[in-house]
Write a protein that binds this DNA or RNA. Structure first.
Length: 394
DNA sequence: TCTGTCACG
DNA sequence: ACGTACGTGACAGAC
């Protein structure tokens, strides 16, 4: 389904392209100086030879074609040689330049907008996907990424409004597992990661340190993917032993979640599929594979699908309700994009307050879980600078 | 066309 | 002993 599209400011992208070009050239010059010869940084093959043969750095993860040079691997080598940081920055900048800064202006149509295509039959979990161009992976996290995002703008006289489901997958976990701690935390509007850290660490919420909260956050998300002690250790800096103990304490505190995950794996083994709260199925053929690696990967898919898929179902219902409510309201606001747990709209400035209320009602009422669905609404003049609208102030 | 890498939720 | 977080799409290099 091709959609209305969103305006992009090709002037600012053009300026960004020239800035990036200069920085990338400077990085290349520095790298050639450090290595003593020219090479193609964009070639994983040449990069492997440079890092692991010429410079003698210790290779990490093995891949089909040799030794990995991905960001995680390079991150671990940063202290070993000054060229590593340059490679990481070069990678980031060329990625942004090639995929967004230079590509988007070419896809801009005569209305000044880029129009993506949403696929409804690609993702096995029930999510939408977005292609040509993919507008569900517009940069956000890095400085340069934020500049790219700021080039997405509303049409003249209007504003962008975004509405996202707060912690929707964790709320789905609370619903399907019936975990009392999690349900209570969402019902009383507490900081969910702090509450988790307090429960796991056996302290009061006020005593939770920033580090404890960070670890709890990683585990809260990781639970939905089948995180291992290895993965937690890598993402938090804990030792593998500490990570294992942390995960054990987590499942001790949230026994209903542990039981739910076990139940899903058993269901998948027995029936060969799993399903969302609304009955969307995903078949998991490898769930009984003899090969352990295949089987464990299948188990992670089985555990993840009901959570990711139920959230996707709720969003689809929320989109239908939003569309209906917009028609009935007679507002000029238009839906532009869906980014998994977020809707982006364009609206005349004077519609912002009533639109926010409409979105909270339409999206928030899309499903009745055992915990409330909270919707955060923001407004702005570009997709980076978005200001929260408080529910009561509306 | 496949592989590695990396942008997002 | 082994691998190690789910779901996507785009780009550049290698073949």
């Amino acid at each position: 389904m091709e959609v209305l599209g969103i305006a992009v400011d090709d002037g600012s992208l053009g300026a960004m392209s020239r800035e990036l070009h200069l920085r990338i050239q400077a990085l290349e010059a520095e790298m050639y100086e450090l290595s003593g010869h020219t090479f193609n940084v964009g070639s994983p093959q040449q990069l492997q030879r440079l890092l692991y043969d010429d410079l003698g750095l210790a290779a990490g993860r093995r891949i089909k074609t040799g030794r990995s040079t991905d960001a995680d691997t390079l991150e671990a080598l940063r202290e070993e040689h000054p060229i590593v940081d340059l490679i990481l920055e070069w990678r980031q900048l060329t990625k942004l330049k090639g995929t967004y800064v230079d590509a988007l202006p070419l896809l801009r149509e005569r209305d000044g907008r880029v129009h993506t295509t949403f696929n409804q039959t690609v993702a096995t979990t029930g999510r939408l996907s977005s292609a040509d161009p993919n507008l569900q992976n517009v940069p956000l996290r890095s400085e340069w990424g934020q500049r790219v995002r700021s080039a997405f703008v509303p049409d003249r006289g209007q504003v962008l409004v975004s509405a996202d489901y707060s912690q929707i997958e964790l709320r789905v976990v609370a619903h399907v597992s019936g975990e009392p701690e999690l349900i209570d935390a969402f019902r009383s509007g507490q900081d969910i990661h702090r509450r988790t850290a307090a429960a796991v660490g056996g302290v009061a919420p006020e005593e939770v340190t920033a580090e404890m909260r960070r670890s709890a956050k990683v585990v809260n998300f990781g639970v939905m993917y089948g995180l291992s002690d290895f993965g937690l250790a890598r993402d938090t800096g804990m030792s593998r032993e500490e990570a294992g103990a942390f995960i054990a304490a987590y499942f001790q505190s949230f026994g209903a979640i542990a039981a739910y995950l076990e139940g899903i794996r058993n269901f998948a083994r027995e029936w060969g599929y799993v399903e969302t709260v609304f009955g969307r199925r995903r078949y998991i053929p490898d769930i009984r594979a003899a090969n352990r690696q295949l089987r464990q990967a299948a188990e992670r898919m089985a555990v993840n699908m009901p959570m990711q898929g139920t959230a996707a179902d709720i969003m689809k219902l929320g989109m239908i309700r939003t569309d209906q409510a917009l028609r009935e309201s007679g507002m000029a606001a238009r839906l532009l994009l869906q980014v998994h747990d977020e809707l982006v709209l364009e609206a005349p400035r004077e519609e912002v307050e009533p639109l926010a209320a409409l979105l909270r009602e339409a999206m928030g009422g899309a499903a009745e879980l055992v915990v409330p669905l909270d919707v955060d609404v923001k407004v702005g003049d570009n997709w980076r600078d978005m200001t929260p609208l408080s529910p009561s102030a509306g």
